[in-house]
Write a protein that binds this DNA or RNA. Structure first.
Lengths: 220, 220
DNA sequence: GTTATACGTTTTGTATACAATAATTTTGAC
DNA sequence: GTCAAAATTATTGTATACAAAACGTATAAC
């Protein structure tokens, strides 16, 4: 594996999981020392992360991890809504029903996972990722898939801002199941509507829990 | 201006305008010599372009300019449709009617531009770009804007595959005018529908003219 | 003639040295 | 003490040298 890829992955993980918190400055020598690569591949990694929108040139402080505010949640969903709706539509048109029948079955058992403590929750998140992967495979639309991948990067990051309560997760599982069943039935319109519902509920929950966690609005 | 930015811009322009045709291999020493920068900033530019999806690692031939096929046109519109629809909706919700009233007026006079030969056509394209910019400003949604910018990069590239006939341009101007008027009237639903219409017509035209220009389907 | 392997060549990937720019501190004037 | 300007320091940007990998070719074995 190339050193630049290694650095990119490491930094990406650190940013997504909060090890490198929003606002933290990334000095080149410091990070290259920490990650055990020289400045050249590190810089390549940094320039990628800037394209991803995860770090930005902060006048006076060099590159810093971008902030995530309540406004970001709203703005991210303004992209997420149309993208996921389109993805669901195309998956309903083109997906292999067998694949999604299997996923539907797993989502019907999601409650057990959600109640099974931390490892169960992790398994539930992994299941969601498999669904995302299946949808991406199904739609066969590279431009849309690229946009979705970038979106999911940011979503993973804001997920840390929202309280994970089992009640919401169970409700989300049911909403997701409706989407999957629409895909199995090859019903694009229903898949789109179900996605719309899921988006709306997720956004509402994210905002509420983020607010309760004292996530601030953006500051000028 | 940084050498890496300069290289990025130059390569981007060359790829979008076809100077660097699809399939062309980009060797580092060759390009760094051509652009008058050293390999380090050139590599940074190349890695950005790879993220943009404009070049790709071709097994055996290094980095090459990505192909654009008929399939790409369809796939690009599968992303364009939802993005532009959402953008139109948000612009209708949040745009300054004064700005769009002015643009509407200019689009009403578009026929004169379209008939005025090459420089007129260029002016018409510039007008379209100002509209895109106005919409981006209006929506105030950075994630969506970023996705739109990336989209428009690829659109500019496939535009070269479609014959530019004045008949289609006039029709497109009228379709666009409907969208702008919906924004002025703060009517998001109408803006979305008008966008949908415009997308459908543009796609149809792109495919037809591309086919007539012998643009090939993707090959395995 | 075909395949495999080893050698040479080219090209990419990484480290480091150097240059330029930006930030900070120090010093001096008021 | 405060402000400004200069000098010092740190940090980023670029070039280049070196290492590693990939590619092509030639040669030998079958």
């Amino acid at each position: 594996m190339r050193a630049s890829d290694k650095a990119y992955r490491a930094l990406l993980d650190d940013i997504v999981d909060g090890t490198l918190a929003p606002g933290v400055a990334l000095a080149e020598v410091e990070q290259s020392a920490r990650l055990g690569v020289s400045r050249t591949p590190l810089r390549e990694a940094l320039s990628q992360l800037r394209k991803d929108g995860l770090i930005e040139q902060q006048r006076g402080r060099g590159l810093t991890v971008t902030q995530v505010s309540l406004d970001d949640i709203v703005e991210l969903y303004e992209l997420r809504q149309p993208l996921e709706q389109q993805a669901a539509k195309l998956a309903a048109l083109r997906g292999d029903p067998k694949v999604f029948t299997q996923l539907a079955q797993e989502f019907r058992n999601a409650n057990q996972l959600i109640q099974a403590g931390d490892s169960g929750i992790r398994a539930y998140y992994a299941l969601n990722e498999r669904l995302d992967r299946a949808i991406e495979d199904a739609i066969e639309s590279p431009y849309l898939v690229a946009a979705l991948k970038s979106l999911h990067l940011h979503l993973a990051r804001i997920r840390r801002l929202s309280r994970r309560d089992t009640g919401r997760l169970k409700a989300a599982a049911i909403e997701t199941l409706v989407i999957i069943e629409a895909i199995v039935d090859r019903n694009p319109e229903l898949a789109a509507s179900a996605t719309q519902v899921h988006m709306q509920q997720s956004l509402r929950n994210s905002l509420e829990t983020a607010r309760s966690l004292q996530v601030t609005k953006r500051v000028a």
